[in-house]
Simulated assay, not measured.
Amino acid sequence: MSAILEIESIRQEFPVTKRMLYLDSAHQTPMATCVRQALSEFLAEGNEMAGPKPVWMRRVERAREGVAALLNASPSEIAFTKNTSEGLNIAANAVPLSNGDTVLMLEGDHPNNAYAWLNLKRKGVQVRFVKVADDEIATAETFEPFIDAKTKVISLSHVTFHAGQRHDIASIGRLCAQKGIYLVVDVMQSVGVLPVDVRKLGVSVLAAGCHKGLLVPQGLGILYVKAGLDELQPAYLAMSSLANPPEDYIARPDDLAPRKDAGRFEFGNYNLPDLHALSSSIDLIRKTGVERIEAHVLELGDRLIAQLERLGVRLVGPRTRANRAHIYVLDLPVAEWLDYFTQNQVRVSPERGGIRISFGLFNTSEDVDQVASLIQQRLSRGAHPSAATQVD
């Protein structure tokens, strides 16, 4: 059992661990008890007090401050969205791009990032895809040969969902700063699991949903927009987006100036229940320590890789610690293995390269040994890994 975290107290926050072997945090994390309690408190307030909106709005700002602290950002650089896809689409429509401008992306990265930029093809914007093998990571050197005078944006995931690569965002950020290129990063798979420092990474815009490492149910996202990028303008406008919203709720056609902070990208009502829960989940994450969560999932990954070597099962993604995080794809045929894991009360995900195992802060070394034992049992009955049975 890992000595890095107070694992027993953490597991008490996640009752699902008593019911199944949950190895699917890259899909969605199970609800923590503190998050459930926060949601229950919100519902009780709405039920018993008809919604104390001033109190709820103060909590929105507390959640904003919590997100900012987690990212080493200013609260004024944080906006709330519905999900990662909305944040990436906000970024794609905010960056000043014109006919012939180019966006660089990684081939095979999350499709919703690609579609946000591909949608701009109708405006003449070109999207170029750069190839990186599943066991490699992207660095500044990956993109530099493809940059020319028309390159305006590089957009990619920090950690990939399909092979678990942890790309070198900091080196790419330095390259973008040198070349005057916007860097837009999807941190859906890394925030809350790995340290994400927007200053060190050098990102222009960062987007994520909150239902994975941030432990909150679906329907809430975060958006970081670097201060000073005033040329990034919202595609949609509402009172909450304005620098001078009309107090009498009568639209002023001559005063449409948006806010200077990231709030210019917010419009309409907030997801108040999830924002209330987000403060509780961030408290849990910060109390545990993101660096310790990172060390914990990497330690579990070390143990899993050793078990895979023993079993002759190939790992699809990177093996080096610095290049991986909490996501591990096993080269096991989905059609043959997914039902087997389900029948044995193991939650995993099918992935393009095989079976994806992804760890959370509540997983243990015993969890790793248990899933390895299940794999060994099936292999001993005549099942086989995919054609490539040798570990790299």
Rank of each mutant, 00 (worst) to 15 (best):
G312R: 03
G312C: 02
R378Q: 09
Y328Q: 04
I282A: 03
L256F: 14
D369E: 15
F267E: 10
I305M: 03
Q377H: 06
R352S: 15
S279T: 13
G312E: 03
Q376M: 06
Y328C: 01
E291R: 14
R292K: 15
T342W: 08
F341N: 03
R292D: 09
D283L: 13
I355P: 12
L338R: 09
S358I: 10
R259C: 05
R314D: 00
V334R: 11
I285Y: 03
G289F: 10
Y270M: 13
S279D: 02
A295N: 12
G301S: 09
E294F: 02
R303Q: 07
P350H: 04
D283I: 11
K287A: 14
L304V: 10
V316E: 01
S349M: 10
S349P: 01
R303E: 04
A372L: 08
V346K: 00
G354K: 15
A372D: 12
L315A: 05
V290D: 06
S358Q: 07
L284T: 06
S280V: 07
E336G: 10
D331F: 06
V313Y: 08
H326R: 12
K260C: 01
L278C: 06
H276E: 10
R356I: 13
N363C: 06
R303D: 00
L338H: 10
Y328S: 05
D302I: 04
L308Q: 13
D367I: 11
L300A: 04
L278A: 06
N323P: 01
F265T: 09
V346Q: 00
V290E: 12
S365E: 08
G317M: 02
R324Q: 11
V316Y: 02
I282V: 14
V334I: 04
Y270E: 10
D339K: 10
G353M: 11
G301C: 00
G289A: 11
L338P: 01
R259Y: 08
L298D: 06
N269M: 12
V313R: 04
D367H: 15
L278Y: 04
Y328N: 06
G354R: 14
R319G: 12
S280P: 04
K260M: 03
L338I: 14
V371N: 09
K260T: 14
L332H: 00
Y270V: 14
S349A: 11
I285L: 15
L379E: 04
V346N: 00
L379S: 01
R259W: 09
L272G: 07
R352T: 13
E336P: 08
I355T: 15
R378C: 01
D302V: 07
P273I: 11
S279Q: 09
P333F: 04
L330K: 06
R310Y: 03
V346W: 00
F362T: 07
T320E: 15
I375M: 11
V371Q: 05
F359S: 02
L300F: 02
N344H: 05
E266K: 05
G353I: 05
I327K: 00
N323L: 07
